[in-house]
Design a protein around this nucleic acid. Structure first.
Lengths: 197, 197
DNA sequence: ATGCTTACTTATTAGTTAGTAAGTTGTATA
DNA sequence: TATACAACTTACTAACTAATAAGTAAGCAT
């Protein structure tokens, strides 16, 4: 009857909130360093409630990676990204990583899971491979067009440069975590200096 | 009296064997994904025996990083490394990473600890910072001399290039773990192509 | 021979982990 | 009004975790 009788969150939101919290914990502590207790405490619930929504931790982990993959595809196909000239597309990519660096030095999905990769389920492993593969393919195409139009400069094949670039960006966020934001910006500045004509 | 009465390992070796196994497990599974049980089983001992040598897991972790730091300093100062021309020094560095890639796609120390960094003790964190700092400083000097002598080519400051290079190498080993050795060699090939005149 | 030290084992604690089963509550619907 | 379902809680298991304490056997030093 009164205000306190309404739930703190809409029930339908709980699943999404678990996914959000799980993703945060994954990117901040690594997959093997967070538990359902961490999520439950944050939500003011019992760990078993998390199991109701994601029966196993593997289900949750897979869902986190799968959502990032969906986000990547959506972002990549967004008119305000897809219709951009290559240099602007590259800057849009940098902006995503900048955002991670600013947000308490969160590493990217790849950087968070790579070290623990062998302890992950086959489902998570395969989902992460797909994620990284699609991102690399997208960037390779951006780089190819960028060089063809004279806006970007690099030696070697676009796909080799794409793998190298994404690897450097993933590593740069890890360096930011170990030291501070400074080396991250140094690295991205260096990449810009080398790539953009 | 007979051969079976002699211990399988010299007692003094146990400490070193624990350190070796701990390092392997760290580089293959991540710090939060191995336990004293893993080490003990491999040595045919009880977990408590590991505690005798390294009272806490943090002690073991710190010892692993500290040994890598000692190794780095020793390697760097070795005549057969220190007296090399810059390009050969760079190749010697690549060879170290190549060795990791070949050895069951082991990541480097930095790449193994960066994701879980916030869950590590202050001692491990500080030791890893020192490790990464000294390696970067060494490479920056190599790059500076290399460019000055016309053997290496890059834009930006030597220290910026050094941070970028090491970050890329660390990331490259992670990519090798997630996919296979191929992208690792692609990345190193790309680095060589860009750097070596 | 005695005691000390090294390198363990056995036994145990306290806490955490993922995961399950059964029960509860509120809400919507037939 | 009955019931069915969603979203939990309570209570639990089994396993693993790091860590400690106490005991033991072997070797060495005096």
């Amino acid at each position: 009857m009164n205000a306190s009788s309404s739930p703190v969150t809409l029930p339908a939101d709980t699943r999404a909130r678990i996914l959000d919290l799980g993703e945060n914990l994954l990117l901040e502590r690594g997959f093997n360093a967070f538990s359902y207790q961490h999520i439950a405490r944050e939500l003011g619930m019992k760990p078993a409630a998390i199991h109701y929504h994601y029966p196993s931790k593997d289900d949750l982990g897979t869902a986190i990676v799968a959502r990032q993959l969906r986000r990547l595809r959506k972002w990549r196909d967004l008119p305000r990204v897809a219709d951009l000239p290559p240099v602007a597309q590259l800057e849009a990519l940098f902006a995503v990583y900048d955002n991670h660096a600013k947000h308490e030095c969160r590493v990217c999905l790849f950087g968070a899971l790579a070290a623990d990769f062998r302890t992950l389920s086959a489902a998570m492993q395969s989902e992460l491979r797909t994620f990284n593969g699609e991102l690399t393919a997208w960037l390779a195409q951006v780089l190819a067009v960028g060089r063809a139009t004279g806006a970007l400069r690099f030696v070697g094949s676009p796909s080799a440069k794409a793998v190298q670039l994404l690897t450097t960006l993933a590593g740069a966020l890890q360096v930011a975590r170990v030291h501070d934001e400074t080396p991250y910006h140094t690295i991205v500045g260096q990449l810009r200096l080398e790539l953009v004509v």
